[in-house]
Design a protein around this nucleic acid. Sequence first.
DNA 1: CAACTTACTTACTAATCAGTAAGTAAAAGT
DNA 2: ACTTTTACTTACTGATTAGTAAGTAAGTTG
Lengths: 196, 196
Amino acid sequence: MSIQSSVALIPDTRTRILDLAETLLLERGFNAFSYQHLARELGMKPAAIHYHFPSKDDLGTALVTRQLRRLRKWRDLPRVADLPPNEQLEALFAVYDNHLGHDRRVCLFGALAADFLTLPAPMQAELRTFNRELTEWLAQVLAVGRATGTLRFLGSPAAKAAQVLTTLAGALQVARVHDETPFQVIVGQLRLELFA
Amino acid sequence: MSIQSSVALIPDTRTRILDLAETLLLERGFNAFSYQHLARELGMKPAAIHYHFPSKDDLGTALVTRQLRRLRKWRDLPRVADLPPNEQLEALFAVYDNHLGHDRRVCLFGALAADFLTLPAPMQAELRTFNRELTEWLAQVLAVGRATGTLRFLGSPAAKAAQVLTTLAGALQVARVHDETPFQVIVGQLRLELFA
DNA sequence: CAACTTACTTACTAATCAGTAAGTAAAAGT
DNA sequence: ACTTTTACTTACTGATTAGTAAGTAAGTTG
């Protein structure tokens, strides 16, 4: 693998494939794009994609693995980890809002959940880990937020975290079917209920 | 079209196709089944499916249209329409719980939202109507429930209805990725918050 | 009884799919 | 300078896709 500057203006081919596949996955679904689509748009032949990702399973797994790495990196960023809980929650909302701004992309979880049973086992496993780690992070944020009085909710932090994340994933899907409005309404409702 | 008893033990072919397509759609996704799959399992040739539904677009649209008819029928059923609001909400939860019991099916909305942009226009339109009518129904239930003191929530009934339905659709997806537990946890959280 | 309709099957097309094998030009390593 | 590795292209396979056209057997209707 070629050594590439971390501030590369032109990403290497492998990254360009992943980026395009991610776009197509989040905008169209996993079963709705092919190696031919990728190759045509990247100006290369389908076999070139197979060189980097022998099978579509490999490509899909790489996509989820990358997103899991991103989650861990984001979560541990000082500008996120050092925030008070209510602002951490707002930062989470901003991530989903940002998806909406990119052609109403759904989140990775929402893109893969419906077709989950057709996915290769490693992809399923990575997606489970992704969702579990994100839920655990939010549960911790909620627990501290309630303890310090900036957040309020009934029930356990774990249950509330699962509920909030599920709602956010669903809200991006509703936004796709209608328009941005229901997403903003739903997130507004979450803010109303959660911020003390 | 042949006249068929309304309590038919053996549904006509068109219905059998719709039933199987619905099963595959809710368990695998719209782009994950073909006319060949349908034909093989029904013991007929793919062209027989084309006879009843000339294109896959027609089949998909028929599926959503049927679900919209079911929603209107269910909503207007005396045993649903005459219930007090808190029991109407519980009846809604029961519908989603029943999906879970059928091999962890997601709801129609959750099955189609991710691939929404790849769907034929009539299917998109029907799905929008379906979601809009269901949300309006729930908003009314919530409004009456709060007014009569059996339900409680902050914000507008419309916003709360959108949030609750989005959460339910998402909860079925989470159940697919993990197991039944998160669904029960999330619905438990909804009950805790909504029932006064 | 004849004509028509219904509900299919058989046989096909053209496109697309994921994936493979062999070749190649350039870059990198020794 | 020689060898190896990288990053592809060309050319192909076999499977699968949605969809069509023509034929047919059974049932329905006038």
